[in-house]
């Protein structure tokens, strides 16, 4: 297998407003030295809570956010391309958003929305483009007679189908999905997840899949990276990660997700219950970012940041894994 996408040491910094005149602007590091590899045809999931930097990582990977590091897409460093070169490269890398309500231009007809990427790239004749749009509509489960409607005339699930059709239009190799189902009702969620699974199989797509929902990630992804405060703390093949999480934070996430396996009537206590909220990325602690909430934390954890190291076929950033 060849690496479709290789991200090396990706870092995203945001300058915050000055606290007072003439003082330096504080810098927030939303993503701190993230590296991962996505092989063609596979799905890599990034999970984490709010503030973990998972969405920023995705946006920086496709250069919708300024970043340093390297993003090698089929061997080309996207961060080194000129704006115009990057613009042409976008046909290979497409994006599906979280909110099906705000990601479609409310003043454009959905047929035009799906056709827009083709128009921008100047693919084929106008009639061929319209034909492509009709085919895409059928592919994602929408009807041709809905082409000239506006986004607000559709339900959330249908809008997400429109979003998917637009992303598929230029024939991408990589689809970046930013929480694509978290705004949808469970029954609709299942429809969209099944659609994404089918499209991946049919079209040989690769997914970079961002989600806070472990169940969704488990269902879609082959490889999972867990992020906490801008860093990857654990990355493994999905079955391994869910069967035996090595990082205490991964363990806590799994213990926290509500599941039908735990019943009130039978009584249960979570195998790993952590206190407090995720810390703010403005002043990250010097050691392991999770040490403040980690029940296993030792003095070493509070002083030294653990690096992401290989461990039994996976990678973990923890001084005391397992």
């Amino acid at each position: 297998m060849t690496a479709l996408l290789e991200v090396r040491d990706l870092t995203v910094r945001f300058a915050l407003p000055r606290p007072a005149p003439f003082q330096p602007r504080p810098v927030l590091e939303a993503v701190r030295g993230v590296s991962f590899t996505l092989e063609a045809g596979r799905a890599l999931g990034i999970v984490g809570e709010s503030g973990s930097g998972k969405t920023t990582t995705a946006m920086a990977t496709i250069r919708l956010e300024e970043a340093t590091g390297q993003v090698l897409f089929e061997g080309t460093d996207l961060l080194g391309l000129s704006d115009e070169e990057m613009r042409m490269r976008r046909r290979d890398i497409q994006l599906i958003f979280q909110d099906p309500y705000s990601s479609l231009n409310p003043r454009a007809r959905v047929g035009d929305i799906v056709r827009e990427p083709l128009d921008l790239l100047g693919v084929g004749t106008p009639e061929e483009r319209r034909q492509t749009v009709r085919e895409l509509f059928a592919k994602v489960g929408l009807r041709e007679d809905q082409l000239s409607l506006f986004p607000h005339q559709f339900s959330g699930g249908q809008r997400q189908r429109i979003s998917i059709a637009r992303a598929l239009a230029p024939g991408p190799k990589l689809l970046v999905c930013d929480e694509p189902v978290s705004a949808l009702d469970v029954a609709i969620q299942a429809q969209i997840l099944n659609l994404l699974a089918r499209l991946r199989a049919e079209m040989g797509l690769s997914y970079l899949f961002i989600s806070h929902d472990l169940g969704v990630v488990r269902h879609v992804c082959d490889v999972v990276a867990v992020m906490y405060l801008g860093r990857i703390v654990e990355m493994a093949e999905a079955p391994d990660l869910f069967a035996a999480p090595a990082h205490p934070y991964t363990q806590a996430l799994l213990a926290a997700a509500p599941t039908m396996a735990r019943r009130k009537s039978k009584g249960f206590s979570r195998p790993m219950q952590i206190e407090g909220d995720p810390p703010s990325p403005i002043n990250p602690p010097p050691g392991c970012a999770f040490s403040a909430r980690c029940p296993k934390a030792q003095a070493l954890c509070r002083e030294t940041m653990p690096e992401l190291r290989p461990l039994n076929g996976r990678e973990v950033a923890c001084h005391y894994p397992g």
Binding site: M88, R90, L95, S102, S103
Partner: peptide
């Protein structure tokens, strides 16, 4: 700041457009 503007950028639209 709205997502459909990011969406336009993601499909390769130029600033003028």
């Amino acid at each position: 700041e709205l997502e459909y503007v990011t969406a336009a950028r993601a499909i390769g639209a130029r600033n003028g457009r």
